[in-house]
Each structure stands twice: as C-alpha cells, then as structure tokens.
Nucleic acid binder design. Structure first.
Lengths: 212, 212
DNA sequence: CGCTTAATGGCAGATGGTGCCAATAAATGT
DNA sequence: ACATTTATTGGCACCATCTGCCATTAAGCG
C-alpha cells in the first residue's frame, strides 16, 4: 500500500506530460471543429482531420475514441473554467451577483477565436445529432461538478435528492441560456455578447424561481 | 393547394400503415434491448439483432438509422404516455396532485415486461455511453413536449424564456426521479416501485421549489 | 553510444451504415 | 386469370469508423 512517494528510478523515454497531451488534443480539436463547421460532421472523415492536424490517422484515433469527441477539449475548457468560477462562489452571495464579479476573468482566459469556436459548436449541435449527443454528455459532466459545489454549500451529501435535483435544474437553466447566447451570437462575437450571457443566466434563474 | 380530400385512385401496393411500422419497430426494439442487457451494446452486432428479430440486416438498418436508436421505440412509448398525461393537466391542479390521479392508468397501459425493459434500459445508460447519449436526446424531445404544455398553461409563447427554462428544469427533475426509480427497481418491479416513482417526482419537485 | 521505454505510423480486419438493383408482395384494372 | 403498378424486402458492393498488432522512431539515461 502506502506508496507515499512512488519510487521512480525511471529508465526509458518518459511518458509525455498530461498538459502536453491535453494541448495536443486541443490543437486537433480546433482543426476538427473548423472542418465540422465548414462541411458538416458527416462529410468530415477522420483521415481529413488527422491530415489537417498533421498526425497519422492511427494516432488521431488514439487521441479521440469517436469522431464527435473532437469537440470535447474545446468545450471542456470552457466548462472547466465555469466550474472553477462556481467553485469559489462565496456562501453569502447570490449566484447571479457572484457571476457578475467573477465571470469576466473567465472570458479573458480564452482567446476570442476559441470562444467563437465554442459558440459555433453549440450552434452546430442543433443540426448535427452526433454533436448534440456529445454536447449533452458533456453537460452531464458539468452537472456533476455543479452537484459537488451545491452539496458542499448546503452541507448535504452529494447524492442527496435535493442536491441532485438542484444541480440538474441549474444545469438545465444554464443550457437554455447558453443556447440562447450561441444563436444570438451567430454573426460575430462581441464583448457585449458575453456579458449578455451573464445576464441571460440571471434572467433564466429568475424565471426558474418564479416557477414555484 | 386545397387538397381537402386528396384524390386517391391509388394504383399499386399500398404503403404499410404507420401503426404497422411502429409495431414492427417496437418488436425489433424488444429483441435489441434484451441483447443489449445480456451482452452489452458493443458486443451486439446489427446482424445479431436482425437475426433475432427475423428480418434481414438490410431492412434492420432501414428501420433503425443507428444501433443505439433501437431503444427509442420502447422509451418513446413511455415518454409519449407521460406527455399525454401531462397534456390534460387541469389548470387548477398542482402537478403532483394531477399525477396522483392520472398516473396509474399510464402504467396499466403497458405490460410489466415492457416497464421492466424500460427500466433496464435506463440502468444500462449509466454504463453504456452510446445508450446514455440516445437517452438524453430522447429526454430533450420530451422536454420539448413539456414546453408546449407549459406554454399553453401560462398563455405564453412556446419560445418565451420562462417557458423554456421551466420546461428544462422540470425535465431535469424528472430525469433525476426516473434514474432513482430505475436503480431502486434493479431487482424486480412491483406496483410499489411505480407508485414510488410518482412520489419520487413529488419529492423532487418540492426539492426544486425549495431552491429559490 | 547502447539500453530501455513511450509514442507513432502502417496495415489488416471487424463492424457500422448506405446506395443500388433485382425479387417479391399487395393492391387495381382488364 | 393475368398484366400493371407501386412498396417493401433482401443481397451485394462499398466507404467510414475504429481496433489490434507490429515495426519504427523518439526521448531520456548511464
């Protein structure tokens, strides 16, 4: 057991660092999304993506188990950032107010191009079944993270029914808001677009609480 | 335009009725789900399903565009039934109360075997990514139907933000409740299991409203 | 420079899924 | 009964997705 500091008399070529691998995936992801947006998912072959990214088809399939999961790195980048913001949501603040404070840095962390790409993917998910499926799966992962945060805030078990319900509901709200912003930003992203997202979330949350 | 009673001097073999086609799909669906549950989705080939259902592989692929969509007929049967119950949800009643009144007939409409199969699929979705994706897509269709109902009740446009948010939130709640019941009913379905579902939904909805 | 281990690329092969055409089934008209 | 017409079916060829296996190359270390 107690492998406190696993002994490491490493001998051969060291495995590539995790960040390196993530960066590679992200790079391929960008190429793939561009192709998806240009010619559709079905019309884009794995071979094409691999070629665009400058790797062999074989290694491409090693990096991505399915074609649609190419969108994952780009999207998770955003989702993870959002989860981080959520994570240090102080107990005494309303969520909306917290977002107003902490949301902008999130946006500065990503390039405009990446943001544009993410929104493009979200728009694509409306016509491309395969992408929609991948997108929904990803949102469930986000919902999970959200559940952790909520459980901690409420001092309840992660699998308490209230926690899971609230996480699911908030996640659903976020989905609606995000979809709205993505379609609104169909042509060009401006800073207002994104602050619009923040406000859209606020509106949506209000709509939820008015529900009873 | 005005094709009031479309003239029909039909000449050749008439297309099979829609119900016929649905029944055929449902039949194949049952075989497929059994195989999925027994040996996993990945290990079940289209050829195998076709053979089990007694059709050629070619026609199988005509009935189902993807392997995972085999679960669709069984699930939609339930979802549609639920939507129907929702549809005549009288304005003056709380949802929970309405369900208490109208939920049982829903269950009587289906055979125990089908209910068992549906729950089995829901359980399967936790380990089988492909099924999870299909399941989520289907839930989105249900969310859409829910949106229609809510819009009508509230006298708002279908695409009003409040309507969409509420539909998404309720749908999410339903998802949690359903998941709970499916895992709870892992071994054998009893009538209590299903009344449990109704109460689980009630609990979940309360949890949601407590959220603010 | 040799030794060791990780990543890559190439190739064969199973499975998913589609287009095309021939065969058959179910109706109607003569 | 038989020809005609149209819908469904099944068979076949074919491309794309994805995996297992092995040779090759890359990256560290003494």
């Amino acid at each position: 057991m107690t492998d406190v500091a696993t002994e490491k008399p490493r001998r051969g070529r060291p495995p590539v660092s995790d960040e390196q691998r993530q960066r590679q995936r992200l790079d391929i992801s960008r190429h793939a999304v561009r192709l998806f947006a240009d010619q559709g998912v079905a019309a884009t072959s794995g071979e094409q993506i691999a070629q665009a990214a400058g790797v062999s088809e074989r290694t491409f399939w090693r990096y991505f188990p399915h074609k649609e999961s190419c969108v994952e790195p780009l999207l998770t980048k955003m989702v993870d950032a959002f989860c981080e913001v959520l994570h240090d949501w102080p107990r005494e603040l309303e969520l909306v107010d917290h977002l107003r404070e902490a949301y902008s840095p999130l946006l500065d962390a990503a390039t405009d191009e990446d943001i544009e790409a993410v929104l493009a993917v979200v728009r694509l998910t409306h016509g491309e079944r395969a992408l929609r499926a991948a997108y929904l799966m990803l949102r469930e992962r986000a919902e999970d993270a959200l559940g952790e945060v909520l459980a901690q805030r409420a001092g309840l078990a992660r699998d308490a029914i209230e926690v899971r319900v609230q996480a699911a509901a908030m996640s659903a709200v976020l989905k609606v808001a995000t979809d709205d912003v993505a379609t609104a930003a169909a042509d060009g992203v401006t800073r207002e677009t994104l602050e619009g997202h923040r406000e859209q979330i606020a509106t949506a949350l209000r709509g939820l609480s008015r529900m009873l």
